[in-house]
Computed example of a mutant assay.
Amino acid sequence: MVANGPQSHVCRLSDAAIIGADPWLRTRLDHPEDVAVADDGTLYAGGENGQLYRIQPETNVVDEIGNTGGFVLGVTIGPDGALYACDFQQHAVFRLPIDSDGVAGDLEVVVAGDSDTAPRHPNYCVFDSAGRLYISDSGERSEMANADGCIYVVEPDGTGRILTEEPSAFPNGLALSPDESRLYVAETGLHEVSAVELVDGTTEAVTHVTDGFGMVDGLGFDWKDRLYAASIGDNAVYRLADPRVPTADQEIECIIKDPDGLIIGNPTNISFGGPTGHTLYIANLGLWHLTAVDLSGE
């Protein structure tokens, strides 16, 4: 079943909860592109004016703990417990140290490019267990289908290089397979997902996975190694049970969809957290909040 075909939804909109904003928007997030979950359940997100937010999902308390001075896209928690943030206006990935008491330190630059040198448009980043930081560089924004993006990698010693110039059509969200043999890439310009085959931080091959998620933006794996995709154009999150199996041989499930875009609006990236790790958190670039969906029954 393809993403734009008739579908039943695994979850109803009434199952979703708004995180990071109150009904009067006295508390709100500035169009969050991504959400990262710390080991203690704390959420982190960025804003379109460089904000770095800490969000307590149980109390909806939001604190701005840093600012990159640009426009924050993807965020992730590193193996050192620091918050890493991609800022496409600054052509840089930043590191914000956070101590055991949750106190943020001074912002540092991990890697920076410019309008001509990678990473030009750092969009999303993810670590492997060896400490390598993979970064999607989306390339030229004005014509996504013909963008000249790449995947960039920063080694544990701090040296950086272009890992692969394929996929290139606005590479966006990333998800590392649980066995770290594949880096899944949302190629937004083509509405496709590709997989970069990895061996010790080098590229073996790039394969097509699916074009069944609509205008895909962000990716993530759940506790059963199923691949989820946030579709910014469909206001929906989809799921593929086994991304190694051809999509013609399995159903693409619609987890949740918001036709009106009020609870889930232009969803961009996703993460899992909560007490059991079964809560799906969705970042909504078109709204002022995150969305939480309990999938513990799944």
Rank of each mutant, 00 (worst) to 15 (best):
N4R: 12
S8C: 06
S8W: 11
C11M: 14
R12D: 05
A17T: 05
I19C: 09
L25D: 15
T27V: 12
R28Q: 12
D30N: 15
H31A: 11
E33A: 12
V35W: 02
A38C: 05
G47P: 09
E48G: 09
N49A: 10
R54P: 01
E58D: 15
V62Q: 09
D63M: 06
G66N: 07
G69Q: 09
I77W: 00
G78I: 05
A85D: 12
C86S: 08
Q89A: 08
S100Y: 05
D101Y: 12
G102A: 11
V103M: 06
A104C: 09
V110S: 04
V111E: 10
D116A: 12
D116I: 01
R120Q: 14
H121L: 13
D128I: 04
A130F: 02
R132E: 06
R132C: 10
S136H: 02
D137T: 02
S138E: 03
E143Q: 11
D148E: 03
G149R: 08
Y152M: 04
D157Y: 03
G158E: 01
T159A: 13
G160W: 03
R161C: 08
E165Y: 02
F170C: 10
L174A: 07
L174N: 10
P178Y: 05
R182S: 11
L183I: 05
Y184W: 09
V185G: 04
T188Q: 04
L190T: 14
A195Q: 07
A195W: 02
V196M: 10
V196Y: 06
T202M: 08
T210E: 12
D225P: 01
R226H: 15
A230C: 09
S231V: 13
Y238E: 03
L240N: 00
L240I: 13
P246I: 03
A248S: 08
I256R: 00
K257E: 13
P259S: 06
D260E: 14
D260M: 06
G261E: 10
L262K: 15
I263H: 00
G265W: 03
N266D: 08
G273F: 01
H278C: 05
I282H: 00
I282V: 14
L287E: 13
H289Y: 02
A292R: 01
V293L: 10
